[in-house]
Structures are given as C-alpha cells and as structure tokens.
C-alpha cells in the first residue's frame, strides 16, 4: 500500500463557453496542479477567490472532469472507474460543502438525509441504519430529537455538524471539505473545527480542507498548498509555509491577514 492516498497529477481544468452560438473562450481555472495527500494527513488548500481551489476539490470528488491530468485514489485513476469500482470510490471519499443553508434537501428530515448514503450503498437494514444515525448524531453533539427535524430548524453550526456526520457515516477513507466553516460565527466555527479534528483523528481519515481563511487552514492542516490563478505557488509542511514562506504571494497573503495577535505581540 502506497503512502499517498490521494494523488493529483498535473491536473488542469479549462472552462469554455459551450453551445453553438457562443464564442469559444477558454479560461484556465486550474493549471497543472500536482499534489499528494498522505494517508491520515490533512492537506489544506488556501487561496483567494478565483484561485481554482474549489474547482480542484470538485475534480478530486469526481464532480468535474479535468481537461487534462489525473486524480488517483489508492493508485487508481478515478475517472476510469466504473460500476462497482466507482461505487466503492463514492463510499471511500466523501464531501463536506460550504453553505449550511443549501447543503441539505429542505424537504427531508435529518434522519432521511443521514440514512440516504447507507441506503444508496445498501448497508444494513432499517433498524441498524436508524441505530447508526442515532449514534452518530450523539457523536457530533446533537440532541436525539434532531433526527426528526428539518434542516431549517437547525442553526448553521448544527447543520455543519450534520454535514460532518453525513460525510463519515459510510466510514470513508477520505473527507474533502470546501470552506466548511466560513459561513459560521467564530465561536461556532471553533467548535465545528474541533469536532472535525476529533473525528478525523478517531477514524484516521485523510482530508483535504479548502479555505480562504489562512488561520483556519493553519489550524487543521499538516501540509499546505497555496493557490493563485489556478496554480500552486507554494506547497509544504504547514509550519514551514507559515514560519518561513518562500513565495512572494504567500508572504503578501500572510501579511494581509488582520490578526489580533499581531497587535498583542506588538504591544
């Protein structure tokens, strides 16, 4: 078994206007990115808007097809997977998305939402699924009766707890998260990040964590990739990237972060 669970090799994505009446213009959202995530580690991808970080994550989730390059999980190119192998991949890699308001079907109860992955993959029977959902709700710190509630009856922080629960209910190997806490208040964000970290450690998950927030990325990541205009400008161990940034852009980015601890140190 290789040390790297996820390998992204020279991946590019060009978005072009499609359609007969539109002028074909190619925009390179992601441009030749190569990254790897070791088993059990978390890769943080940080960048500003338009850096291509979300597009890259969606390619790793097999939601957007790369224009060139490959994404490999366990040494297998995910875009060549079919049938049972594809289903196994869908079980192995789970997403957490940004927006708590639109992450869930508003017409389904939390129970239905959490049970869906188990149903899709034919795991367990009715009772065992229900038991699993109940146990998981408790694990992410939600009351038992949340199972019958609808998403709009929960707060943003509770919804992101549900998103974490849904992402781990299939006991995946990797969780790929896109700005999972950026819509939350800081106090709630801190709790959700702690929960994410705890569960990730408990289950030995491999993770990719995409955010525009350097401080959040720093807190959760083992390695960090800094993206700009579709390319990775700096890639390395978290402490090294923050402690001794090499690239000009990384330095600018770090300097631009308003941070109360800078003030506290200066005084």
């Amino acid at each position: 078994m290789s040390q790297d669970l996820i390998r992204i090799r020279a991946v590019s994505k060009e978005f072009g206007a499609t359609g007969w009446f539109k002028k074909p213009v190619g925009v390179k959202a992601v441009d030749g990115v190569t990254l790897a995530v070791k088993r059990g580690q978390t890769l943080g991808i940080v960048g500003e808007s338009g850096s291509g970080k979300s597009t890259l994550l969606r390619m790793a989730l097999r939601l957007i097809k790369p224009s060139s390059g490959t994404v490999e999980i366990d040494g297998q190119d995910i875009w060549t997977l079919q049938g049972a192998e594809l289903k196994a991949f869908r079980r192995k890699v789970q997403p957490i998305f940004q927006n708590p308001a639109s992450s869930f079907n508003p017409r389904q109860s939390i129970g239905q939402i959490l049970v869906a992955p188990l149903e899709v993959h034919g795991i367990g029977d009715r009772d065992s699924r229900r038991a699993k959902v109940a146990a998981l709700l408790e694990r992410v710190g939600l009351p038992k009766d949340a199972i019958d509630r609808h998403p709009h009856q929960l707060s943003g922080g509770q919804k992101q707890r549900i998103a974490i629960a849904r992402a781990v209910i299939l006991q995946p190997e990797a969780v790929l998260a896109d700005e999972p806490t950026s819509a939350l208040d800081v106090s709630v964000q801190a709790q959700v990040l702690d929960l994410f970290d705890d569960i990730r450690r408990d289950l030995g998950l491999t993770a990719i964590f995409v955010s525009h927030n350097l401080a959040v990325i720093r807190q959760v990541s083992d390695q960090i990739a800094v993206m700009r205009h579709g390319s990775v400008v700096e890639y390395g161990e978290a402490d090294q990237v923050f402690g001794d940034p090499q690239h000009e852009y990384t330095k600018t980015l770090i300097a631009a972060v308003p941070d109360h601890r800078k003030l506290m140190r200066a005084l």
Partner: peptide, 16 residues
C-alpha cells in the same frame, strides 16, 4: 471570542 478566533501567529489553537 479571543480564544475562539484562529490565528496565524503564536501557537496553534489545538491539535497539530
């Protein structure tokens, strides 16, 4: 609030 705000300076809040 001060404790909950993650920072790029000083020690990491948790983990790592």
């Amino acid at each position: 609030l001060l404790a909950a705000t993650p920072s790029i300076h000083g020690p990491r809040r948790k983990g790592g």
